[in-house]
Structures are given as structure tokens and as C-alpha cells.
Computed example of a mutant assay.
Amino acid sequence: MTVLVFKTNMVCAGCKQTVGNALSGFGEAIRWNADLDDCDKILRVETAGIASSAIIRVMHEAGFMCEELV
């Protein structure tokens, strides 16, 4: 498993719900959590084979800024 970490612009529980709906398209291939208390509004995604670019694309399509932190 790989943990990918992203900076986002999520601000509320509604944003987390929207992101959850968007990420559900990956099915059980990922587990994720978001830390909205962090200044970078961190999204952590645990996956065994989904590229970070796919996560970023889905986040952008859902209306959110998403940038991988390395």
C-alpha cells in the first residue's frame, strides 16, 4: 500500500462528503481521510495502485484544488 498526501481547498464537512462521493468511483481500491484542521487541508489516500494524477483529476472534476505533497 502507498499513502499519497495532497494539499486541498476543502473547508467543511460538506466538502468532505463531496470528495467522498467523487472518490467512491475507485471502489475499494482506496481508503482516504481528510484533515480540515491542518492549514493545508490535507487529504491522505491509501491505495495499492491508483496514480496520484488520477486522484488529482477526480478532485478537480469535483471542483477542488488538489496538489500532491512530496
Rank of each mutant, 00 (worst) to 15 (best):
M1P: 05
M1Q: 08
M1Y: 11
T2A: 10
T2K: 13
T2S: 13
T2M: 12
V3D: 15
L4A: 05
L4M: 12
V5S: 02
V5K: 10
V5W: 00
V5G: 00
K7D: 13
K7R: 14
K7W: 01
N9H: 06
N9P: 08
N9S: 10
M10Y: 06
V11M: 15
V11K: 14
C12N: 15
C12M: 09
G14P: 08
G14C: 10
G14Y: 12
G14A: 10
C15W: 09
C15Q: 12
K16W: 00
K16S: 07
Q17M: 12
T18P: 03
V19T: 14
V19R: 06
G20Q: 08
G20F: 09
N21G: 11
N21Q: 15
A22R: 05
L23C: 07
L23D: 08
L23I: 09
L23K: 08
L23E: 06
S24T: 13
S24A: 14
S24L: 08
G25Y: 05
G25M: 06
F26I: 03
F26L: 10
F26T: 02
F26E: 04
F26S: 01
G27E: 09
G27H: 11
G27I: 10
E28W: 01
E28L: 03
A29P: 02
R31Y: 14
W32N: 09
W32S: 10
W32I: 02
N33V: 06
A34Q: 10
A34D: 08
A34L: 14
A34R: 02
D35T: 07
D35M: 06
D37T: 09
D38A: 13
C39F: 11
C39A: 14
D40C: 05
D40F: 06
D40Y: 06
K41L: 03
K41P: 03
I42G: 01
I42P: 00
I42V: 11
I42Q: 07
I42C: 07
L43H: 02
R44I: 06
V45W: 04
V45L: 04
V45S: 06
E46F: 03
E46I: 11
E46V: 12
E46N: 11
E46R: 15
T47F: 01
T47D: 11
T47N: 05
G49H: 07
I50L: 10
I50E: 05
A51N: 00
S53V: 00
S53N: 08
S53L: 03
S53F: 00
A54K: 12
A54R: 13
I56K: 01
V58C: 08
M59Q: 08
G63Y: 03
G63L: 05
F64A: 08
M65L: 07
M65A: 12
M65N: 01
M65G: 01
M65R: 04
C66M: 13
E67H: 12
E67W: 01
E67N: 09
L69T: 00
L69P: 03
V70K: 07
